[in-house]
Write a protein that binds this DNA or RNA. Structure first.
Lengths: 332, 332
DNA sequence: TTGTAGGCGTTATCAC
DNA sequence: GTGATAACGCCTACAA
C-alpha cells in the first residue's frame, strides 16, 4: 500500500543525522532551533510516525497494559473497560484490549499473545472462573495481573461487594414490611449470585425469618424471573418480598406479580440488582443496587500502574461497595 | 519484574542454533524430530514467547488491525466491536482496540498511535462526524480505513439503512391504522436521526398524510420521550401513530400516553428503533427495528482484510438493512 | 537437517 | 549541538 517512512528518510530530507531526528522528537538532548524546524518540517511533509516496534526493541518498557476480557457486549465488561480507559488517561500507558472471543476462549493463547507484545501488566475482566484452566501459568506469571470483577485466588482482585448487597437487600425489604422473604437467583455457577444469596440469607436468618429451600436458580433474564415467580407464588403464597439476583429477573417478577393480581409493592416488594438502564423507568420503578463498575476499572489500572512503577507485588483483595437505589418496587 | 527470555536463551538451553528454534516455531523448514522436542521442552521450561516487536521488524506485516471507537459502553459500539472480533477469528489478524476516551478524543493522536504500531488497517466506529477535523489525513492515509456505522465521505463505509427503517416504520404504522402520524426525534446532529426522519417523512408524504412541523428533537432518552409526547399530544391531539427515533424515547412515549389515558396501540400506535434489551418486555412490548450491528462489524473486517490482502482499494458504501420486529405497541 | 550472518528502525553511547 | 555506530530480538537467505 505504501513504503513506510523511516527515521532515515526524515534525516536525509532534513539533511541531518537520524540521531538528531530522534532527539528532536523525544527531547532527551537539546537540538538547535533551526535544525529542529527543518526536522519537524520533514516529518510533517513525509507523514512520519516512529515505529513503536523498533522503539521498544531497545529498552524494556512497552508502555502497554493488556486487558483480557469476556464478551464486550456484557454491561459489566464494557463499564469496567470504560473505567480502565479513564484510568489510563495521562498517556503513560496505552491499552491493548483482547477479547476471549478472538481466541476461541483459549486463555493461554490470549495470555501468550499479550506477553509477546510485551505488555507490562494485565487486567483480567471476567465473570467465570476460567482462570483455573491455566492457574499455574498465572501463579508464576512474570507479568503482574489484576483481576477485576472476579475474586481470583492468589491474584490481586478488585471486586464488588455482592455479599453486603444481598445483606442490605434483606435489611431494606424488612424495613419496607417484608416478613416472608424469597430469593430468585441467577446462574448457580456465578460467584456474584452465590454471594448475593449468602448475604441475603444471613440477614434473613438474623431477622429470624425463613427463606424457601428452593432458591430458584436459572438464567439471568426476564423470562426466568417471570416463570420462577409464577412457581414461587404457587409454592409460597404468603411471600411478600422477593430479592431478585438482577434487574431482568426483577422485571419479569414484577410483570408476573401484576398479571396475577398482586400489587407491587403493597402486597409484594421486589428488589433487583445491577441498575440496568430500564430499571428507573419500569412501570414500577425497580429498587436496585448499583455496582461501582467504572470505579473498579479505574482502581484496577491504578493498582497495576503502581506495581509496574514500584515493582512491588502484594496479593490483596479490594472490595468496593455497591449502592442501594430505593425506588417504588419496594416502598413500605 | 524479570529478565525477558529471548530466542538465544532457548537455543542455548536446547543446544541448537537460534535459527532452529525459529523454524521449530513457525515451521518454514523441516526440523528433526528429536531436535524439535528438545527445543519445545526448552521453550516450555523457560516460558519463552517470541517478541512480537522483533518479529515484525523485518517484513512489513504487523498482523494487526486497529479499531478506533467511541465510548464502548454504547450498545452500538460494543455490538459492532463484537462483530469485529468474530470476523477476526482465524488468527490472521489481531485487534488493537483504542477508545477515543484514552486520547481525550484527539483523533489525530489516536490515529498516529495506531500508525506507530504499524496496524495494517483501521476500523473506524463512531456516531458523530468527528473525522472532519482531520479529514485531510484520512483522505491520503497510507493505511486503509473502513468506517463502520457512519457514512463518511471518501471512505469505505458500512452503514445501517436508517432511511429505509424510517420508511418502513411509516408503512407499518399506516397498515396498523395510523392516519395522523408524528415523529419524535433524537439529537439533531446525528445522521441516524436525520435518515430515519427522512425515510419516515418520505413515506408519509407518499401516503398523502402530514407530519407536524415540529420534529421534537432532543436527547435519546426516556425523559425526552415522555415530555415530548406530552407536548405533542397537546399540540396535535389527533395523533394516532408515533415513530420514535429509538426505544428509550418510545418507552417514555408509551408511559406518557398511558398516564394521559390513551390506549396503546388502540388509540395511539408507537414504534421505536434499535431493539433494546427491555423493548420486548416493556409493559406494552415495543415494535422496533433491529440494526445489523454485529454483521456490520464482521463485514467491516472482511472488507478490510480483502483490501490488505489484495492491495485494491475502492471507495464504496455497503448498506445493511435493518429488520422490523412487530410487537404489540403498534398492532392494528 | 542444521548453523551463520546480515538486516529491520530505533535509541543510547561515544566521539567530535 | 551534532554525527557515527552498536545493540535490541527475530527472521531469512545462504552456506555447510
Amino acid at each position: 500500500m505504501s513504503i513506510p517512512v523511516t527515521i532515515l528518510d526524515v534525516a536525509e530530507r532534513a539533511g541531518v543525522s537520524p540521531a538528531t531526528v530522534s532527539h528532536t522528537l523525544n527531547g532527551k538532548r537539546p537540538v538547535g532551533k533551526e535544525t529542529r524546524e527543518k526536522v519537524l518540517r520533514a516529518i510533517e511533509e513525509l507523514g512520519y510516525v516512529p515505529s513503536w516496534n523498533a522503539s521498544r526493541m531497545k529498552g524494556g518498557k512497552s508502555g502497554i497494559i493488556g486487558c483480557l476480557a469476556a464478551d464486550i457486549t456484557e454491561t459489566f465488561v464494557n463499564q469496567i473497560v470504560r473505567g480502565i480507559e479513564h484510568g489510563l488517561t495521562g498517556g503513560e500507558f496505552s491499552l491493548f484490549f483482547v477479547s476471549g472471543i478472538e481466541f476461541g476462549n483459549d486463555l493461554k493463547k490470549a495470555y501468550d499473545f499479550l506477553k509477546s507484545h510485551k505488555v507490562e501488566g494485565i487486567l483480567f475482566c471476567h465473570h467465570l472462573p476460567i482462570w483455573k484452566e491455566f492457574n499455574l501459568d498465572i501463579q508464576n506469571s512474570t507479568i503482574p495481573i489484576v483481576s477485576v470483577n472476579m475474586d481470583t485466588p492468589n491474584m490481586i482482585s478488585v471486586i464488588p461487594d455482592n455479599y453486603t448487597g444481598g445483606y442490605q437487600a434483606a435489611e431494606h425489604l424488612y424495613g419496607c414490611g417484608m416478613r416472608n422473604p424469597a430469593m430468585i437467583c441467577g446462574p448457580q455457577d456465578r460467584l456474584s449470585v452465590q454471594d448475593r444469596l449468602k448475604g441475603f440469607s444471613q440477614r434473613v436468618k438474623e431477622l429470624k425469618l425463613t427463606l424457601p429451600d428452593d432458591k430458584y436458580f436459572g438464567t439471568y433474564d426476564y423470562n426466568h424471573g417471570f416463570s420462577a415467580t409464577e412457581r414461587l407464588m404457587k409454592e409460597h403464597p404468603l411471600t411478600d418480598g422477593i430479592f431478585c439476583a438482577n434487574d431482568y429477573i426483577a422485571a419479569g417478577a414484577i410483570a408476573c406479580l401484576q398479571k396475577a393480581g398482586y400489587h407491587v409493592p403493597q402486597q409484594v416488594r421486589v428488589v433487583g440488582f445491577d441498575n440496568r438502564d430500564f430499571s428507573e423507568f419500569w412501570n414500577v420503578p425497580i429498587t436496585t443496587f448499583e455496582l461501582p463498575l467504572q470505579e473498579m476499572g479505574m482502581l484496577g489500572v491504578s493498582i497495576l500502574k503502581q506495581i509496574i512503577n514500584t515493582g512491588v507485588y502484594h496479593t490483596e483483595k479490594r472490595i468496593l461497595q455497591s449502592r442501594i437505589l430505593p425506588r417504588e418496587s419496594s416502598k413500605g
